[in-house]
Structure formats: structure tokens, C-alpha cells
Nucleic acid binder design. Sequence first.
DNA 1: CATATCACTTGCTTATTGCAAGTGATAAAA
DNA 2: TTTTATCACTTGCAATAAGCAAGTGATATG
Lengths: 119, 119
Amino acid sequence: MTNNITRQDFERSFCPVACALDELGDKWTLLIIRDLLLGKKRYQEFLASPERIATNILADRLKKLESAGFVRQQPYQQKPVRCQYILTQKGKDLRPVLQVLVTWGKIYYPGSRVLDAVE
Amino acid sequence: MTNNITRQDFERSFCPVACALDELGDKWTLLIIRDLLLGKKRYQEFLASPERIATNILADRLKKLESAGFVRQQPYQQKPVRCQYILTQKGKDLRPVLQVLVTWGKIYYPGSRVLDAVE
DNA sequence: CATATCACTTGCTTATTGCAAGTGATAAAA
DNA sequence: TTTTATCACTTGCAATAAGCAAGTGATATG
């Protein structure tokens, strides 16, 4: 399910940019990926990020990220079962994208900086 | 207006990724940047892209891209005045971002390809 | 027994998107 | 001269998504 061609993949066009934006093109999804690349794994950790994502949107995005193959769920305790989110290879491979975006952003939003090290 | 710190720049947080997504985080904006990097300049050229952007959204995004300093308007005829859109340095400097995104996308959306050469 | 934590879900209001049609300036064709 | 066409949009409206506050169920802790 992680790396197959489906109808979804070519929703709008055969352009890799368009395909990527079909899955990542909003104000929140890449921030969750950023957090995952920074080592965050749990719901509360994502919620604690300074952008203050709403709980319903976080839940929705995690669901979509999982069904798009960017993350998988991994239980870290029983009673009750609680899961953390782990990047797949598809998700991990976004690191260079975030890196160049950070490089660009630090130039054009002077004073901005990443919490920890995506870079 | 192109490279100043404003309130807008830190809408959600001081993270360069969040700042970038405040201006670029949707399904259409980066596709217009892609087209501009590919050499497209005019309204009708953007409309002709395979993703079929709606006219109201294109007009809205071009307006926002201009006020965010990614593009500027340049008249190419009088009677009636018609303008084309030219990337600023801020816009041009997104090329590496698009390049790594394309590299990533060609792996994870096999069969996808860019119309011309962003890469 | 009361309070707290975690990972959500639900309800509701507001904002954004997508689609079709229309507009105004001008040129070219019938 | 009336019609048709092009270009760069704008307008209206229905559908979808976002944002906010509150609630839920399982469990642990005081």
C-alpha cells in the first residue's frame, strides 16, 4: 500500500509536483512531517507544537498521512492501547525537501528558525 | 516589500516551514510557481496547465503571490493594458525546493513526469 | 470517589474551494 | 456594422474544509 500506482496518485495530472500537493498541499500536513522528522511521535507532542493545530485537524491529517503511506502506527502500550506514529521511507525521504525549504525560509523570513534540527 | 519582516511573516510560529506554508501551503500556489519556473508568464498559459485551475482561484493566487513578493506584474501591451507575471528573486529561489520535490515525487508517484524542465 | 491524562470525536460556525456564467476592453471577421 | 473572438479577470452560489469548544471512553493516581 505504500508504493503502488493508484487512481489517487494522478488526481489532477501526471506532474510529480501536483501529485505531491494532492497529498501534502495544505497548511498543516508538512508541519506534522516536520515534527516527525524532529523525532516527535505522539499526539500530544504534535499538539504541543507552537502552531497550535486543532485536535480534529491533527486526527484527520494523521489518518490521511497513514493511508497515503507516509506514516504507520505503532502501539507503545496496552490497556489502553496507545499508538505512536512512525515515518515510513516515503515520509523519511521528504527530509531533503524540508531541508531546502528551511534553507529558503531562513533567508526570506529573517528571524525564523527551526525548533531543533531538521537541517 | 519583498524582503521585510512583517507581522504576516510570523502568523503561526517562527518556524521557516510554517512561514513558508502560510504563503505557499495549498494545492495551487506551488503549481503556479512551477509554471513560472517553466517559463510561463500569462494568465492563459497558467489556465492551460493540465491541472485545470479555476479562473477565480488563479486570479486570487496571483494577487497573493504578488503581495507576498513572489512575482511582479509587467505590462506587455497597451490598449488594453495586459500584464504578464515575472518571478522575483524570492520566487526564483524556490527552484531548488521544486527540484527536490520533483526528485522525490518521481520516486513515489512512478509514471509521473514534469512537462518540461524544472529539474 | 474525584481528578487527571491520552487520543481522539462531535457539533457548530466561519472561511475557502470549485463551478458556471458574466464583464469590459479591444480586435478581427462576416 | 453587427457578430464573433480573445484576454484577464469578477460575481454568485453550492459544496467542502477549517477552526473552536466541548465531550467521550479507557485507565491511572491521589
